[in-house]
């Protein structure tokens, strides 16, 4: 009789532990989800964000159909698109030597990722203690604008990889604003970069 009691108790304990384990695993995220979760510094237009490479501020953006490149020797003729160009003005203060800033990209509400076109604009090499103001030109579909956010990773190794660490700038565009931006899209002259010491 005692043996039977012990067996029942053992079974109940094992079943209880199994239940507890499956309950715990339903509320605790799997290790993979935590290990692969990117470090994202989220911000909006005009507000600076700090990340591994330095401090980034998107000061504004334009939507254009045509971009006149800078410097002219990069491309003598304007770049035109069947979609839209999102021309991003940004400021960057390096926290450490960065030879080349990674490529900006635009991520739309459906998680499509559009990469910046390096043949239309160029940026100065960042230097710690100095602020550079540059532009990035991203070619996208007009449907990418509502809910779009900008992404600046720590390195632009591959457009297939999800970045481990990045600044994410929400452009806060709704459908009506997107329609208006596309309707008003015209020609934009890409600007030369500007650099000055950070006060």
């Amino acid at each position: 009789m005692r043996k039977l009691g012990a067996a029942v108790l053992t079974l109940a304990a094992v079943a209880g532990m199994l239940f507890a384990r499956s309950w715990l695993s339903s509320i605790v995220p799997p290790a993979d989800a935590i290990l692969k979760r990117p470090f994202l510094a989220r911000t909006t237009v005009g507000k600076p964000a700090e990340y591994l490479l330095g401090r980034v501020t998107v000061t504004g953006f334009h939507v254009a159909k045509t971009v006149i490149p800078w410097p002219p020797k990069l491309r003598p003729t304007p770049a035109e698109t069947a979609g839209v160009f999102v021309v991003v003005d940004y400021e960057f203060v390096a926290a450490k030597p960065v030879r080349v800033l990674p490529d900006w990209s635009l991520v739309d509400a459906a998680e499509n990722r559009y990469l910046a076109d390096r043949t239309v604009t160029a940026c100065e090499q960042p230097q710690p203690g100095f602020m550079i103001a540059c532009q990035a030109v991203i070619e996208a579909t007009p449907s990418a604008l509502p809910g779009a956010r900008l992404l600046l990773p720590t390195h632009s190794n591959s457009n297939l990889d999800t970045p481990e660490e990045a600044v994410v700038v929400d452009l806060e565009i709704d459908q009506a604003q997107a329609d208006q931006l596309v309707a008003e899209a015209g020609q934009v002259q890409a600007k030369a970069p500007m650099i000055k010491a950070q006060a």
Partner: peptide
Amino acid sequence: QDGRAGSVDLPPGLTT
């Protein structure tokens, strides 16, 4: 459309 190099990235969803 504008003679940009063929190596330039093509955006998703856009017909180029």
